[in-house]
Nucleic acid binder design. Structure first.
Lengths: 173, 173
DNA sequence: TATTGTTATACTCTATAACTATA
DNA sequence: TATAGTTATAGAGTATAACAATA
């Protein structure tokens, strides 16, 4: 278990006198044993999530969208005419925290709040034309760069299996 | 796609006059369409991660350990004699942020910092007897409650496959 | 009285610069 | 000069209470 790329297994060793990579200038330490951490699902889950979000941000950087913002645009596109509470609840965002988020999107002209005529307390949310255009471009970037890279790493079938298991945990755990 | 438990498909409908669950007192709204959000791995990954961490906290609540604290104790147990920088780097914790975390563990007498005799700048970290005892109890709780519940939901083989894919992403993505 | 959007606020995480003591 | 631990600080993300407008 815990396969380990030990220093001794590195073929580049001994060829050059002092390899000096930026991260190992002085220490030359043996890598730590992950031990039972390797078996803890939550640990790998968290580390994987950070990697995925980092890559998402890189891939969609030209459009300046965070994963959370992208999820809001996607949801607004699929569910026109819903109010803030409905959108926020669906995404697991608390209503107070959704206000600043919407302010950001609205100030960039990606969506608009409109007072509902039925219930004047509610703000109906809609994508603007620009919002739809940005979303469309974002989807293409995500598919072509982000998800494609995942498929490359895991294979299409494994990626689908992974998604299904994660959705199951998110839904039923 | 996007299977949908629509209101019309709910067999409980029409039987009782006004079902009034706490979450749907007034709205009686159709559930939103998740749409392409269901296909976005990062989204399910994040939601799953939150669920897993919540459950971890519940399961190990008697010992008052967060996932991050548990990971530190595990790593200290497997790697005695390492310093703060080494432990923090391995866990992806920034050194400045690791200080307060260690303060917490040390004030609870779960680990100790000792000045290294070789390099008096370094703090060697070690579990205390109490730290080992708490870690041992925590491992039992995690195995018996947390991981067991995951196995129940996914099945042992699927759980292993999930772990491997997440580790792959964490390592190589 | 209850709900929607909002403000204020607080607490946790995370990230960076800079200090000190050692090397 | 560089490194280990530390401090200070700032920014996200998340959580709760309470208010005004409306129902």
């Amino acid at each position: 278990m815990t396969v380990s790329k030990t220093a001794a297994a590195d073929p580049a060793r001994g060829a050059r006198p002092a390899r000096k990579e930026p991260a190992e200038t002085a220490a030359e330490t043996t890598p730590l044993q992950m031990g039972e951490l390797s078996e803890l699902l939550g640990y790998s889950l968290k580390r994987a999530q950070l990697k995925i979000f980092e890559d998402f941000l890189r891939c969609v950087a030209p459009l300046q969208l965070t994963p959370a913002q992208f999820s809001v645009l996607l949801l607004l596109d699929q569910n026109p005419g819903r109010n803030q509470t409905e959108i926020a609840n669906t995404l697991g965002i608390l209503r107070p925290n959704f206000v600043a988020m919407l302010d950001g999107l609205e100030s960039r002209d990606l969506c608009v709040r409109m007072r509902s005529t039925n219930d004047r307390r509610s703000h109906i949310l809609m994508l603007t034309d620009k919002g739809r255009a940005v979303l469309s471009r974002a989807k293409k970037l995500v598919a072509a760069k982000h998800e494609a890279r995942l498929n490359e790493l895991l294979g299409s079938a494994n990626r689908a299996a992974l998604l299904e298991m994660l959705a199951t945990i998110a839904r039923e755990f």
